[in-house]
């Protein structure tokens, strides 16, 4: 079980140690979904198949590059899994307003870029999100 973040990948000293361990096959990556970064206690498996139990103090929060274990033989480093985004382009201002309202009403995580609404697919596939927008069919375009 790992019970604290011991270092960060970008610290110069840590980075050189990780580089050496990577050459020796001792660097293991733990993928954590962006939506799970707030968790202090969970179980996960590294890309090499090593099960890891994480129990962090409340004062620490996971982020990309957190080093959970580091010794001469092994390093465990967190990599944040990129979320999938549904990219929607409203066709006019009224549709943009209603799309923004719908996303907020459904508590979706969104960001805005170039007049588009990007919805994080935190809890389902694109079809399940688009189904909630059926009343707006034809008033926005799915970009990706």
């Amino acid at each position: 079980m790992v019970d604290r973040i011991v270092a960060w990948r970008d610290d110069p000293d840590t980075a050189s140690r990780l580089h050496r361990l990577d050459h020796d096959g001792g660097l293991e990556i733990l993928i954590v979904a962006e939506t799970d970064l707030g968790r202090r206690r969970f179980q996960a498996t590294t890309e090499n198949g090593r099960p890891v139990q994480v129990a962090l103090p409340r004062s620490q929060r996971l982020a990309d590059g957190a080093v959970l274990h580091l010794d001469a033989q092994l390093a465990l480093v967190v990599r944040v899994g990129a979320p999938d985004w549904l990219d929607l382009e409203p066709l006019d201002s009224a549709a943009a307003l209603e799309l923004g309202y719908a996303a907020g009403n459904l508590h979706w995580r969104v960001k805005f870029s170039d007049g588009r609404v990007q919805v994080a697919l935190d809890s389902g596939d694109a079809e399940s999100y688009l189904a909630r927008l059926a009343p707006l069919d034809g008033r926005f375009r799915v970009v990706s």
Binding site: T35, D36, L37, G38, R39, R40, R41, F42, H107
Partner: peptide
């Protein structure tokens, strides 16, 4: 049914 917990508050 829209109620959810922040992961800053709970682990699970």
């Amino acid at each position: 049914l829209a109620s959810t917990f922040s992961l800053d508050l709970v682990d699970w």
